[in-house]
């Protein structure tokens, strides 16, 4: 294969995952959280596809496609939630949602 080894793709994916997780844990707007979540999912996809290439097995790509589908579904729901929150005039702040407080 030309170019970098598969390992470099994996490291890139790991960094992307870290960035995405930082976004999930540090930002308060649900929209940005959702976007960061997308980054994490994409990083996982990259990992899957890299391994598919490494082992010569297409199952990795199939898995990645499934992930994409699920991510799309999840984004739809997430956005639906945000819109519902906005409709009900709830402040769009993740820290405000304290209903799970025990």
């Amino acid at each position: 294969m030309d170019g970098p080894d598969v390992g470099w793709y994996l490291i890139l994916a790991a960094i992307l995952f870290g960035i995405g997780s930082l976004g999930v844990m540090l930002r308060r707007s649900p929209l940005v959280v959702l976007l960061s979540l997308e980054i994490m999912l994409n990083a996982a996809n990259l990992t899957l596809i890299a391994f598919a290439r490494q082992h010569g097995s297409l199952s990795g790509q199939v898995f990645a496609l499934a992930v994409m589908a699920v991510a799309a579904a999840e984004v739809a729901i997430g956005l639906g939630l945000i819109v519902a929150m906005a409709r009900r005039r709830i402040v769009l702040d993740v820290d405000e949602a304290r209903a799970l407080r025990g």
Binding site: R27, S29, L31, A76, L79, V83, A86, L92
Partner: peptide
């Protein structure tokens, strides 16, 4: 595109 639609709908409230 869905994302952008929602951001547009939210307008100012989406500021983060």
């Amino acid at each position: 595109v869905m994302f952008l639609f929602v951001v547009a709908y939210l307008g100012g409230r989406a500021d983060a």
